[in-house]
């Protein structure tokens, strides 16, 4: 009881923290309309696109970091935040995608469709977003039960491909300075290597433990 209460409150706090980047953008937009700084700068659209894109990648990496962190820090309860982090990745991804469709292209499909087909950085970014869709939809306890833990887990491995596509999207769009995408790529590589190591060195106990904790969220 006391445990549940504590997690509920920490979830509220973490939720608000995750919302901060969006609130910051909203504040800057509000400032822009009043002519006050800090605003969105000279190219507001670029500012919003970059910020939402950055936060999508960050939340994807945070989501993927939770399993390794649980082990390394011996804090299995971190699982309580995984779904939230994943859904925030989807939230910022949706804002990023909407910014492109709506503010950048004004829903001009005759421009957008060839863009997606011709521009590999847009195609791969679009892929990253589409891969997140089924994960967001099936993120509820009901869906875990309907699919069954094992199948659900398989489906949710799509998150690796989404993160990979997201990092490639960033890498392919920069002009010459690859340092920032390289940082994302480095972190993602570390997170994937961790999983490969765990996978190659199977220990029954390890896997059983992981499954038990993965479902902890459902029965909470």
């Amino acid at each position: 009881m006391a445990f549940n209460l504590r997690w509920r409150w920490s979830k509220v706090v973490v939720f608000l923290l995750c919302l901060l980047p969006a609130l910051e953008l909203a504040l800057r937009a509000w400032n822009q309309s009043r002519g006050v700084e800090p605003d969105l700068g000279v190219n507001p659209l670029e500012h919003i696109t970059r910020a939402t894109g950055d936060w999508t990648l960050r939340f994807l990496l945070i989501t993927l970091a939770i399993t390794p962190l649980r082990k390394l820090l011996q804090r299995p309860a971190l699982i309580h935040f995984r779904r939230m982090a994943g859904l925030f990745a989807f939230f910022y991804g949706s804002l990023h995608f909407t910014t492109y469709l709506w503010f950048d292209k004004a829903f001009a499909w005759s421009e957008i469709l060839p863009d997606v087909a011709k521009r590999r950085f847009i195609a791969v970014g679009f892929t990253a977003f589409v891969l997140m869709l089924p994960l967001a939809i099936t993120s509820t306890g009901g869906w875990i039960r309907r699919l069954g833990g094992k199948r659900w887990q398989w489906l949710h491995r799509l998150v690796y491909f989404s993160a990979l596509a997201g990092v490639i999207h960033y890498w392919w769009l920069v002009k010459s300075d690859i340092r920032k995408p390289a940082i994302y790529a480095g972190i993602l590589a570390a997170l994937l290597v961790y999983r490969m190591v765990v996978w190659v060195l199977p220990s029954q106990q390890h896997h059983a433990g992981a499954r038990k904790l993965a479902t902890a969220e459902t029965v909470e």
Binding site: V42, N43, L45, F103, D104, A106, E111, D115, K118, R119, R120, F121, W172, L173
Partner: peptide
């Protein structure tokens, strides 16, 4: 090779 040059965003304008 990676993006279109057909349109541009004039800084200060909303539509391309």
């Amino acid at each position: 090779p990676r993006w279109s040059q057909k349109t541009e965003r004039r800084i200060g304008e909303f539509r391309r």
